[in-house]
Amino acid sequence: MTDASAPAELLRVANLHAFYGESHILHGIDFVVNRGEVVTLLGRNGAGRTTTLRAILGLTGTREGSILINGRETIGMATHAIAHLGVGYCPEERGIFASLSAEENLLLPPAVASGGMSVDEIYAMFPNLYERRASPGMRLSGGEQQMLAIARILRTGAKLLLLDEISEGLAPVIVQTLSRVIRTLKERGYTIVIVEQNFRFVAPLADRHYVVEHGRIVEAVTMAELDEKMHKLHVLLGI
């Protein structure tokens, strides 16, 4: 799926500032995500990780700085136009629509690029969703809702996935399933940015970790450096 002639860099965030009304949340975020990489944004609650994902999609208030997606500057673009650059978003609160059935939720997001998974492939990947397809969105369990929230952005052809706290509040067996899903998606060439609290869940999956604190990136750790920087990470994350 990765195009050899395309540049390696899929997402470049530079000096990103974001505001909610009067409050200044992000103070110059810089990071880079290459095609086919899994990258995490780690940090404590309120550090600005979720805001960073939301700012990439233009869901915050004012935002300043630069966000290049596939080499295109998106800082002045409308949210729906950014999505059509091939971005899929799975929000922290999962955002399953209560008035839609599970299958309507799955079919809701419009295609933003070619090459999305077919509904059959998705049901093969998430058999539970097939069984629950006629249920109203709000009747699904937390794990089913989370899988649905991921599944529905795989259908759209988005290649850059922004996943916010997908393991939060789920049973260990479901977290293992999600871990397998992320691995499969990586093998298929998806580029994934994960905001995560559960370091043990993402540590084996990610190529790189960025630590966010007070609205800035304070540390970047590659997979190779993980052992030597483990102590520092523990201090930064308070784990």
């Binding site: 729906h80 978003y89 929000p91």
Partner: peptide, 23 residues
């Protein structure tokens, strides 16, 4: 399908827009 955008937009317009619908 159009109606499902409307119903979803009634619940959470920002998310529907983040999926690429011109809300």
């Amino acid at each position: 399908k159009l109606g499902s955008y409307l119903r979803a937009g009634t619940e959470n317009p920002r998310l529907v827009q983040a999926f690429g619908v011109n809300v």
